[in-house]
Simulated assay, not measured.
Amino acid sequence: MEQNKFEKMYLMQTVQKTIVILRAFTKEQPKLSLTELNKKTGIGLSSLQRFVATLVYEGFLIRDERTKHYQLGLSLIHLGKLVEEESSIITIAQPILQQLNQITNESISMSIIDGNERRCIMNVESNYALSARNHVGDTSPLYAGASAKSLLAFLPQEEIDEYLNKVSLQRVTENTVVDREKLIQELQRVREQQYIFTRAERIVGACSFSTAIISNGRPIASIAIIIPEARFDEGQFDTLRDLILQAKFDIEKQLNK
């Protein structure tokens, strides 16, 4: 027990020191030498060298070989852009998704790519007692379910290939597509028609319509209407498809203003 406590303290201190190093860079001092970092952070030179070498390797710092100075790296720009996009998309999408919920009375969710998974970041509850839904924070493989596949489909092909090369396609339900060629063909159809409909592919007893929100050529989120199979009416298919696509277009229009 004491060993675990020690390890947690060590990990926290490591993260804190990393943050201190990154925060040492300012608008007034965008470039710092190792000696200057040592003075600003108070971290010993031997430890500081290891921290800095790791941050350079991961792209969070850049080292100028001529001057031996360091500056913040492009990985931070990427992360900052993700935060900016996610914050703005939540603000823009929330009223549109709430309106979609009022029209359909069904659960409406929004998800993003988190590493190799889909993560739900917003859910508007169904007005029915019987409902199917995503919970905020829930994750799933990018190859399983409408919300995930609509994100995967719009990644650049090389990123799709890279993902499929390292992931093991396993069934979540009996309807999960685990044949790589069939999955690739399905992703192509999603790109062509701009939406996907799945039935009990990730959640038994649930149907989903989903589409991706595209910004600067990349999928930054997906939105979905989630309906219990017991209540799904095939006669509503076209209406629900049109509603999810209209919500997509409305969100993208505001994002690109």
Rank of each mutant, 00 (worst) to 15 (best):
209 F>I: 01
2 E>A: 15
228 P>I: 11
97 L>E: 06
108 I>E: 05
50 R>G: 00
76 L>H: 03
62 I>W: 05
23 R>M: 04
206 A>H: 03
37 L>P: 03
153 A>T: 05
155 L>F: 06
172 V>M: 13
10 Y>Q: 07
84 E>T: 12
89 I>M: 10
117 E>S: 10
24 A>C: 09
127 N>L: 13
165 N>M: 07
57 Y>S: 09
205 G>A: 11
177 V>G: 04
246 Q>T: 15
17 K>C: 06
239 T>D: 11
94 Q>H: 11
23 R>S: 06
155 L>D: 02
141 P>Y: 04
74 L>I: 12
35 T>S: 06
11 L>V: 00
131 S>G: 10
29 Q>G: 04
129 A>R: 11
101 N>Y: 07
249 F>L: 06
74 L>P: 01
57 Y>E: 15
228 P>R: 07
102 Q>E: 14
195 Y>L: 13
227 I>H: 06
129 A>F: 15
22 L>D: 03
255 L>K: 02
256 N>L: 02
190 V>G: 04
45 L>F: 14
34 L>Y: 12
126 S>I: 08
35 T>A: 11
257 K>M: 05
163 Y>G: 09
130 L>H: 11
45 L>W: 06
244 I>S: 10
34 L>E: 10
148 A>C: 09
96 I>H: 14
96 I>W: 08
218 R>G: 05
61 L>M: 02
186 E>P: 06
166 K>W: 05
139 T>F: 02
105 N>V: 14
92 I>Y: 14
144 A>N: 13
245 L>D: 03
178 V>S: 00
122 M>V: 06
248 K>T: 02
32 L>F: 09
176 T>F: 02
32 L>G: 08
161 D>T: 14
224 A>R: 12
24 A>N: 00
202 R>K: 12
12 M>P: 00
144 A>D: 08
192 E>F: 00
216 N>T: 11
96 I>Q: 11
157 Q>K: 14
77 I>E: 11
255 L>N: 03
9 M>T: 08
191 R>M: 01
100 L>S: 05
14 T>C: 00
227 I>R: 10
60 F>L: 13
53 A>Q: 13
114 D>I: 01
181 E>D: 12
1 M>D: 13
76 L>D: 00
10 Y>F: 09
67 T>M: 04
178 V>L: 00
175 N>R: 15
232 F>V: 03
227 I>C: 01
179 D>C: 08
101 N>Q: 14
10 Y>W: 09
113 I>F: 01
38 N>D: 03
36 E>W: 05
163 Y>L: 14
66 R>S: 11
